[in-house]
Design a protein around this nucleic acid. Sequence first.
DNA 1: GAATTAATTGAACGTTCGTTTTATTAATTG
DNA 2: CAATTAATAAAACGAACGTTCAATTAATTC
Lengths: 215, 215
Amino acid sequence: MARTTGSDGEKTEAAVREAAVNLIARLGYEAMSMRQLAAEVGVQAAALYRYFPTKEDLLFTLMREHMEGLQQAWSMARPAATDPVGRLAAYVENHIAFHIERRHATHVSNMELRSLSHERLTQILKMRTAYEKELRMILRDGAEAGVFEIDDTGLTAMALIQMMTGVIVWFRPGERLSVAEVTASYLSMTMRLVGATISHGTARPTRRAGDVVAL
Amino acid sequence: MARTTGSDGEKTEAAVREAAVNLIARLGYEAMSMRQLAAEVGVQAAALYRYFPTKEDLLFTLMREHMEGLQQAWSMARPAATDPVGRLAAYVENHIAFHIERRHATHVSNMELRSLSHERLTQILKMRTAYEKELRMILRDGAEAGVFEIDDTGLTAMALIQMMTGVIVWFRPGERLSVAEVTASYLSMTMRLVGATISHGTARPTRRAGDVVAL
DNA sequence: GAATTAATTGAACGTTCGTTTTATTAATTG
DNA sequence: CAATTAATAAAACGAACGTTCAATTAATTC
């Protein structure tokens, strides 16, 4: 046999991407074979090589596009306003919404980094760092303006990102909590964690000793 | 050749375990071959099968003993006192110390779960759930006593654990921050996140409106 | 409707994998 | 010091892997 009736390169490539994200998320990159992926798409393994020259190219493409999507989502959600509380809230909301919506792709991008070549790993990490830097800037601005109370900006940014991204580990759509409820809770935890005050911008944080523990 | 001079079963098995944790953490379970592991130990691949009947048995043993170690560490660090703030502080300190000290083993236990059979996966997850339940109990007790302010106990416990465990992703001993500094920061962030008040036990949380944002 | 291009199959290649078997030597026991 | 046990090496097994190549058919172009 050869070309099948109704076959279409664009559709096949899209099907390969989707099946690959799901399979890699479920089995892991190393554990997923090209034959398995092909079977999921309904095609022979050799056909995959028309769209991706190697298995690693496929992985890299999925990761790069995921990271580009994350940056783009944030660039569209980023508020024009400059007050740190509003910017932080937008960051948290966007991060959680994006990661819940793309759980599988996030799983792949976070767990399969070691299967990339050194050069490609660097490239993905650069994109990730750029995205995380946005959060550090918000935290730094807020701390300088006196609306946040933060020990260490870098450490706090990492803690927040781990906390937020961790949502994909346990959250399942349609169970006990809705996306809105989860987002609201994480927003509230985030604001408490950074010691956000209601006062915007100029006021000093007038926390009275003994109100909130800071060991 | 056959048995080598100075060979000792106990020492070889210990060497296999240690090399396996490091190799799996670095390469991933699927990507590590038994021949690679054997070479790291300085032995032929067939020799490994004297100590572990299959590759998966090796992985499972590493994970089970890691989880047992975690539970044991907590059972020894658990304070006799009943006040939630002290118990939470002990939980955080123990969790971070343990995970920083056993970064590689934690990596393995968290990332390679999908390579276990269903039965063994269940067994490991049961141990993990039991450990996490301790945190949920502390949070619930604190919320009921009025010393914590928590939306959802389960969600908060997951957020805290993800945040704390995430330390192994970016922390490297001997760099900018010491273990003590990291622990202190995480403790402070945790207490703010759960809205801990200084008052122990009976007092109601007398937070004044506008002091801490809770969106 | 012939020529060209797009999409895929089926078979094969060499390599590596986890694992088993058998033989061999070191250490221990009586 | 002979007999036994412990610990390994060496070689081989079939299966599965990523990938390549040639052949073949569907769709498109002129």
